[in-house]
């Protein structure tokens, strides 16, 4: 029986300066036979810097595209800044800025024109678009290349221009899809410096990456693999989840070492860097392991858990090289074992 609209809540749960920036409910995406997203639920709060971390093919761009109104989900729904990403995409688009994984500048136009014209596309007046472009050229240190053709910039400069372009309409929410792909360490640091500045001024950032150091400064991180979110928490909580410290052994035969450790009741993971062991007190077990391990140990190292370790622990695969063989797992997903 459809009653009248609730007078207490004339705007429903849409609109209004709510606390929630992004909300996804059981999102699925299928590309023909490929099931790229398998039920994604997440909430990103206003002002948060949120990172989606996962290896190649995990579904990052797919999820990103759905949230940024570029792609329709096969099932489920998402709301961004209070608006449905399918039915109200125009409303969402007014208030978001996007840096795509692939470059999307007009190469033949100058940097200045790229920014100015995008300003017009976001309904700024000609004067406002000019002023805003100049402001961004200044704050992002692009004044020197302002008149240069976009296609003649270095990779790092291009990405900075793309960031400027995404910021032209002063969006409330910034979407960054592997925005620093192919940049050197310096250029990456500079790029994230700018993104963080935006975030500190109150903007919400949703970024995807497969570099753990890029996810590290985020307020919260979602680890994604095979279209599912494996864990979602603050970086520290994710690392605590692993419970203890990490003992990393680089040996002459990692597989054999792992098998031996397994017999001893440990739960070793073989990653690209060696055999990984998560134990409450790594220093306490190290001498015994070193003394008894039947294969030669080249290097042993103890460290606090990194996001890389968390990912390896959850999936049995290394994050930054998707090549490592997947661990044989039981029927159920890895879940949050610890």
């Amino acid at each position: 029986m459809p009653g009248p609209a609730d007078p207490q809540d004339p705007r429903g749960d849409s609109g209004g300066p709510g606390e929630i920036a992004i909300e996804a409910r059981s999102l699925h995406k299928r590309y023909g036979a490929v099931h790229a997203l398998r039920g994604i639920d997440l909430v990103v709060r206003r002002g948060e810097m949120f990172a989606l971390l996962g290896p190649n093919g995990a579904g990052k761009t797919t999820l990103f595209s759905i949230l940024a109104t570029l792609l329709r989900p096969s099932e489920g729904e998402a709301r961004v800044l209070g608006h449905d990403t399918v039915r109200e995409r125009a409303r969402v688009r007014e208030r978001i800025g996007i840096v795509f994984q692939e470059p999307a500048l007009e190469g033949k136009l100058s940097v200045r024109d790229n920014l100015y014209l995008m300003g017009l596309f976001y309904r700024l007046s000609s004067r406002a678009a000019k002023a805003r472009s100049e402001e961004l050229l200044h704050t992002l240190g692009l004044e020197e290349v302002a008149e240069r053709e976009a296609q003649k910039l270095s990779g790092g400069q291009k990405r900075r221009v793309e960031l400027a372009r995404a910021l032209v309409a002063s969006p409330d929410l910034l979407f960054l899809d592997e925005a620093t792909l192919g940049l050197d360490v310096d250029a990456r640091r500079q790029f994230w410096g700018e993104a963080r500045r935006y975030s500190q001024r109150g903007g919400t950032v949703f970024l995807t990456t497969h570099y753990m150091d890029e996810a590290e400064p985020a307020d919260r991180i979602a680890l994604i693999d095979h279209g599912r979110i494996l864990a979602l928490d603050t970086p520290q909580a994710l690392k605590n989840r692993i419970g203890g410290g990490v003992l990393l052994l680089a040996t002459a035969d990692d597989a054999r070492a792992a098998a031996w450790l397994h017999e001893r009741g440990f739960e070793p993971e073989v990653g690209a860097r060696g055999v990984l062991l998560v134990v409450p007190e790594p220093a306490a077990v190290l001498p015994e392991v070193l003394a008894q391990l039947p294969v030669r140990t080249h290097r042993a190292e103890i460290h606090e858990p990194s996001l890389e370790d968390v990912f390896l622990k959850l999936t049995g695969r290394a994050l930054e090289d998707g090549q490592a063989a997947p661990r044989v797992r039981g029927a159920s997903g890895p879940g949050a074992a610890q």
Binding site: P103, A104, F121, R123
Partner: peptide
């Protein structure tokens, strides 16, 4: 093909 159209289409233009 080069991805530039995406930037245009995602702008809030009718």
């Amino acid at each position: 093909q080069i991805g530039f159209l995406k930037a245009v289409l995602v702008a809030p233009v009718p």
